[in-house]
Design a protein around this nucleic acid. Structure first.
Lengths: 209, 209
DNA sequence: TAGTTTTTTTGATCTGTATCAAAATCATCG
DNA sequence: CGATGATTTTGATACAGATCAAAAAAACTA
């Protein structure tokens, strides 16, 4: 079902990791799930890189395999799909969250999503092969991976319930409660799309009918 | 974030595991994700139990913490929530799939879902503490856990996309394609609810307008 | 097998949200 | 600035699917 990718030194080219970039936010994040040893910190330092991506750039586009996962130190990104001409926003992620195409990442196949920076963003990136090797070498990290994906799974469950039996207004209210930090940083159209409604409807909801 | 539950012998009471029940379907399932050693088979044999539950019984009800995960050898179950008087079906699961309240299971808190047998079902059950201990003792099993939840995560992603921008008919057609094995075993109302529509609408869709 | 209950279908009407169009507001930058 | 383009709001209308009601069909049960 899932293709295992073996780790070899070769994949570390062409960019060599820098060994003194600041991955503190990532470590702190992981510590909320598992204890983090010095040894693991060193490994994470080795396999990660820091990138600053300016607003409006794409980390991923359809037809390509997503080989990296991104931990967001600062900034805001979205994942969306296209249906004909329309962009349908699947998700947003901001500081302290992860963003990637899990689908592409896990199956090692192309995914037809777009990942775009909505703000200039500072990201800690990890290449999938290196991450898998880290999972193999540090069982506690494998556990972290399980916890993290479980957390996202539960959030998705809530979203499904919400889409299934809450009205547009209820969904908007839920978003304002649970994603305050993103609310005023998002273009109306994208938020509407994420909520499964048109931007006109969202505008009317905001106006209070 | 996630509460760790330590494993002690005590929790193995009151039912002692039987050591010769047939867990072949479970082992075969796990083998599609990871290699399974004899040692791991023995452990799974030890921590699992077999239960046959007749149709119309509840494995879980609101207000209780779900302490078990269930692998379905045969039969069909549903997870649903109540909104006022209405039952809103979140999910179905049949032979070869897992069913549990991930939410309750991971966080060790009550979940307000119902898990009901829609057919008499044969289940392999594993208690959460024992499973967590198995994850600790067998890193490959931890990996299996990560792969499994990732798989369900991806299925949920598809469902969200579907709810967000497909019509009722499109969603029905998608279900008929991807869940053929369940289609004719489900009451109309439950399937409609799962698709996010009323049963009248589903009936009309089936009639072809 | 008839009687009862449950499930599904059909019909009539209503409503939330979409769609199309245009006006108003906001942002960017030469 | 003021001009230009992007974003948001407002208005009028249309439609998918909900709701309410009742008939038909299927599934039990005695």
């Amino acid at each position: 079902m899932f293709k295992m990718i073996s780790f070899t030194g070769k994949q570390m080219e062409p960019t060599m990791p820098s060994f003194n970039h600041n991955i503190t936010p990532l470590i702190e994040h992981i510590k909320t799930f598992i204890p983090v040893s010095e040894h693991l910190v060193e490994r994470l330092q080795t396999i990660s890189e820091i990138r600053t991506i300016e607003k409006g750039k794409f980390l991923h586009k359809p037809g390509r395999v997503c080989h990296h996962t991104y931990f967001i130190v600062s900034g805001l990104l979205s994942v969306f799909y296209k249906k004909g001409e329309k962009e349908v926003t699947d998700n947003f992620a901001a500081e302290g969250e992860w963003i990637t195409s899990i689908y592409s990442f896990m199956k090692n196949v192309p995914d037809n999503c777009y990942i775009e920076t909505l703000e200039t963003s500072e990201l800690i990136t990890i290449e999938v092969n290196r991450l898998e090797q880290c999972f193999s070498d540090f069982p506690e990290m494998e556990r972290f991976g399980r916890f993290l994906i479980s957390k996202y799974f539960m959030e998705q469950s809530e979203r499904i319930i919400s889409l299934q039996f809450h009205s547009a207004k209820e969904r908007y209210d839920f978003f304002t409660k649970t994603s305050k930090n993103k609310l005023h940083r998002l273009p109306l159209g994208m938020l509407a799309s994420h909520l499964g409604i048109t931007q006109e409807t969202l505008s009317r909801i905001r106006a209070g009918n």
